[in-house]
């Protein structure tokens, strides 16, 4: 299985949010507990909408929840 080019901080954010369970987070963003587990483990790449919903639950920006780690593709550029 190809490794996803990004990591996520969902597990830590859940812990910081009164140890929210995967099932609770799943219910709030409209996916199953298994899907949250797969996202956390980096096995499944969520849709953009679900990624935004997850970030919204924790009151975070998307890039605080999903962090691009693949240095081989796309240099980050400063906005002009």
């Amino acid at each position: 299985m190809a490794r996803l080019p990004f990591q996520n901080t969902i597990r830590r954010l859940r812990f910081d949010a009164d140890e929210m369970t995967q099932a609770e987070l799943g219910a709030r963003v409209g996916v199953t507990r298994q899907t949250i587990a797969a996202i956390e483990q980096g096995k499944y790449s969520p849709t953009l909408e679900t990624a935004f919903r997850i970030a919204h639950v924790f009151g975070q920006d998307l890039e605080k929840v999903f962090i691009w780690t693949d240095s081989s593709q796309g240099q980050k550029t400063k906005p002009g």
Partner: peptide
């Protein structure tokens, strides 16, 4: 029952 009653999500 909770698993069984859950609607299909995007991963499913």
């Amino acid at each position: 029952p909770d698993d069984a009653n859950a609607a299909l999500d995007e991963r499913d």
